[in-house]
Design a protein around this nucleic acid. Structure first.
Lengths: 217, 217, 217, 217
DNA sequence: TATGAATGAGTCTTCATTCAT
DNA sequence: GATGAATGAAGACTCATTCAT
């Protein structure tokens, strides 16, 4: 499916090792300084190998970004199922999934920022692949939301949008790190956001007024 | 406060005209293709003037980005007060503010994406100025939230975080345009998000379970 | 017709001046050291301008070669008609044309060698254009041969091949410069080759034997 | 005499085998794409061995070209004596030699073009060796011409230049393959060129005029 | 003020060559 | 002897910036 990156080396294990070596360096540097300002030379140096070697395992610089983005998104997609495994209760699964998601983002702040900043830097075709991966990750959260609705724990609500609100606050932890970091931990951040979403914001009086206003539009 | 951009031209009116001419072109191109891939030559061409002239009104390329980002964020900050002017009812003001915010973002999708992608491309000192502007815009929303709490329309809730949730879904309209555009209008998008935030997600049973789970953490 | 080279500069006179400046340097260096070993930097230096400027007037290095080859072949094609102008006698025209051809080759030995060595270094489509120009030059010689046949000065001979023999010995003056230079002047070289072609090689006895052998094949 | 190529391997038979393996691949690729655009990796691949092995049998890439050119020229030099062996009649020997030469060129068109394009790509000292080989081959043809003169079959003519004309039309078969191939076979080509050279081109009247013009110079 | 031609530093990328296995 | 992964020097090309007009 993903237009595969060609390597000039055959040994699969070596390819995997070298690639992740390069990708780790690249994701860090791309995340910190951005894709364009980071030079291939810097990536190679940071990864502890020569410039030329990067081109034995990647076709060009964009390939490094592309595989980097995929790596990041794949890691997100894999951690959520791992976190919900064995949990039966829908609401508990839901909370576990959201916490897992926020935790993996916290562990990869540079990478998350990278995904936001540089998805546009890959070719349109590849961008589609990247977006598809994001959709798939969102679907994991959405499934938990849906289970809660089915179990009668959530009102019959706007599932897609609720999912997006969750995804957005998770991402915001990375995107607005300068704002949140130091104020609280990821766990607190997650809990407080969940509380906001799950508990009523409006008072009884507010609710009546809101109905009126919303109807008036 | 902002480390000011030096112009080689004195005529204030001319400076203002030329700068906005360049900035309009730059914001569009930076938004569409990104800061680094856009060349100064392209900006000048798009603005209908010569390359050299850009350097009469801006010190360097980064200046253009910096002033561009400020322009974008300023326009956001200005539209919200305009939208709430004359409205007395706190909840109505709140809703008007949020709708105004979403509307201005919708009208400047490229610019919003630009602010997300390229804030890191300016020097740290300048980045602070940019973030400050963002904080100020958020404060406008936060003020409305606070009024609603004071008026007894909102529960005594996590005002800062609620504000962020609102800001995030507004931004998401631009950041995830590929996902939302076509599915609904901005107005619908705003209403549905507000509904989600303001109406309870949990059922009665869900609420009891949630309390138990949250407490168990 | 020829897929035209794009310049980033509009001023036609300047384009013409800069291009010929670059081409003169390039033809010399390409001729002496070959296309690949010559760097764009060297061309620019030799032409007395900066590397970047070459790219304002040529799309890439191959464009320089392509235009260089065209320049060389065009100059050949133009000198022959100039040399025969005003001469009526077919044989005299023929001799004038051949001498002119050899003379222009002598004046551009590097360029002639270049045309032989590097025609393969341009894209297939462009190679076709180059070859066409060569065919057109040959046609100028062929026309003179044909006139001599028509005027009853040449036997009804193999016109195409005779033309090629002439073209080849003209080129050989450049290609085998190391062998001929010093032994004689171009004019002598041309005369002696023409003498060989136009006077009988075989003796009377040789002719009889040759007829027998050629028939036996 | 040729500054000899160093091999890191001793076994003479193996050296010979490996070298010819590499050279066959190299001559083909150099002939088709040129010396510089062909990579050592491609040569090794085409020869069915590893890149590193090339450097066990050749000092560097230029060595491969140098030995390749020698191989080509040697093969030419060897085929001519083989073709004249046993023939006593001078004119018959002459014709056999020319036919043999054209035939071997036809069988090695890429290699012949290679010799023309890339002789300049070797060091000056080595270039001398290559040219010497070419001179030796020419001498084989020249000897036959001289025999014909001595036997009274050829007029006392410009032997050196006549030899060159013959060599040139033989080479032209390869150099201008795009022009001649398809029009006729090598044998026809050879016969027609020999006919042109050996039979008079000028008519009786043409001869008188030519004497006048040549004298007038 | 305005222009756009000119500069040259810096980037990506290739590839001859080496060397550990 | 053979392999092919690793190196790094070098080249094509771009583009922010300057400056003569």
């Amino acid at each position: 499916m993903p237009p595969n990156i060609k390597s000039k080396v055959d040994d699969t294990a070596l390819v995997a090792r070298r690639r992740s070596q390069v990708l780790a360096a690249a994701i860090e540097l791309f995340g910190k300084r951005g894709y364009h300002p980071t030079t291939v030379r810097e990536i190679a140096e940071h990864a502890g190998l020569s410039t030329g070697l990067v081109y034995q395992y990647f076709g060009d610089k964009e390939d490094v970004l592309y595989l980097g983005l995929q790596t990041v998104l794949d890691s997100y997609r894999e951690r959520i199922p791992a976190a919900t495994e064995g949990i039966a209760d829908p609401l508990e699964r839901f909370r576990a999934a959201v916490h897992a998601y926020c935790r993996v983002i916290d562990a990869n702040i540079d990478a998350t920022v990278l995904a936001y900043r540089e998805t546009k830097s890959v070719s349109p075709k590849r961008r589609g692949v990247i977006m598809q991966k994001e959709v798939e990750t969102n679907a994991l959260i959405e499934a938990e939301v849906r289970s809660c609705v089915k179990a009668g724990l959530f009102e019959k609500t706007d599932v897609g949008l609720l999912t997006y609100l969750i995804v957005m606050f998770a991402h915001a932890w990375a995107l607005k790190a300068w704002h949140f970091q130091g104020q609280m931990s990821v766990e607190q951040y997650t809990d407080r956001n969940l509380a906001l979403l799950l508990n009523p914001v409006l008072t009884e009086r507010g609710r009546r007024e809101n109905v009126r206003l919303a109807a008036a539009r």
